[in-house]
């Protein structure tokens, strides 16, 4: 074969190949066309194998033309391929359309119990002030629950705690988290900033604001200069943290045998914001915790010198805080564990 013939054949093949590519209806047809002209046994490939039989001086020219044809066809193939695949994609996407207004496939998610969540929130506030968590036993002895806290047997103040006694001699179910004060003082040295959350028990008929089992968080801070003013400042911060910055707070005298002076801590009513309503007994205030400066006798029982050190303690009912924070009006809901109630705290 001479150069002229070969060139003419190549040009014909180029034209046929471009036709085949242009008319390929789908990617499969295009692949077939590509294979037919450019594959290992394709027509163009076969033809170009004949270059070796041309005279030596013609070979470079023919090689250049061959490459040009090959590239042209390849370019056409990829362009056609882009077009064909784009169209296929569009068709597929159109077929895949869904009703996007249907809800998603629900993912299971539980909730933390609002009492546990409230304890965590209280923890978080006092944690920022350096308070660390301790825990004590729930079955306590009379000595730690009462006597060490300056509440001797037959003291009239025992009326403040209706007690459940157990069948272990001199033991009871702790009526408050306050015995933890003694345990912490004996376990560590000042400076002390301790927080004691936990379950407590009382002999108390159940109603909307009382239960025989409930949770408290106790706080204890002892150092050389820890004063009533520090307690006041700290509790004000706490009131703001849980009930909103700007919430009014009030300090007034209270009574506990293990604090002197003793304090009742009020926040502005969360229902009426202080203007007076049935929820706050028309006073505009709600008491959220009791506190006071640790009684010198209690410090001494904890092994701390009350001449050198002083401090404060506070104790709060978690249910009460949770009720105020979440607008819950019946404390019994917390122990009933109705999922319709618990799931509101997601």
């Amino acid at each position: 074969m001479d150069l002229g013939t070969m060139t003419a054949q190549l040009e014909r093949l180029r034209s046929d190949a471009l036709d085949a590519v242009a008319t390929a209806a789908d990617p499969a047809a295009l692949d077939a066309a590509q294979l037919a002209f450019l594959g290992r046994k394709g027509a163009i490939t076969e033809l170009l194998r004949g270059i070796g039989r041309l005279p030596a001086e013609d070979r470079p020219r023919m090689g250049a033309v061959g490459n040009e044809v090959r590239e042209a066809v390849e370019a056409a193939v990829s362009e056609r391929s882009r077009d064909l695949r784009g169209a296929a994609l569009i068709a597929r996407l159109a077929a895949e359309a869904v009703d996007v207004t249907t809800p998603g496939r629900r993912i299971a998610r539980g909730t933390r119990h609002p009492i546990a969540e409230t304890i965590a929130a209280i923890d978080e506030v006092f944690g920022r002030f350096g308070f660390v968590v301790y825990e004590g036993p729930e079955v306590e002895d009379d000595v730690t629950n009462f006597q060490m806290l300056n509440i001797p047997a037959d003291h009239p103040a025992r009326d403040l705690w209706d007690t459940l006694y157990v069948d272990i001699p001199d033991h009871l179910l702790r009526t408050h988290t306050s015995p933890g004060q003694i345990r912490v003082m004996r376990e560590t040295r000042p400076p002390i900033r301790a927080l004691l959350p936990g379950r407590c028990f009382r002999y108390e008929a159940v109603d909307a604001s009382h239960g025989f089992e409930f949770f408290q968080v106790e706080g204890l801070m002892v150092d050389e200069g820890t004063s009533l003013a520090d307690l006041k400042g700290l509790l004000e911060e706490f009131g703001h943290a849980l009930f909103g910055v700007g919430r009014a707070t009030r300090f007034r005298p209270g009574y506990y045998p293990f604090t002197e002076p003793s304090v009742a801590f009020d926040v502005g009513c969360v229902v009426c914001d202080g203007s007076g309503c049935p929820a706050c007994g028309r006073t505009g205030w709600m008491t959220i915790l009791g506190a006071g400066m640790v009684h010198p006798v209690v410090l001494r029982n904890g092994g701390i010198d009350p001449e050198r050190y002083q401090g404060f303690a506070f104790g709060m009912g978690v249910e009460r805080i949770a009720m105020l924070r979440h607008g819950v009006h019946d404390l019994r809901l917390f122990m009933e564990n109705d999922l319709r109630f618990l799931e509101q705290f997601r």
Partner: peptide, 17 residues
């Protein structure tokens, strides 16, 4: 008690626990 000043504690912090 309203005449007691309000301040946040500035005394020593306990060690980490």
């Amino acid at each position: 008690y309203d005449t007691v000043p309000t301040r946040t504690p500035e005394t020593l912090m306990p060690s980490f626990r």
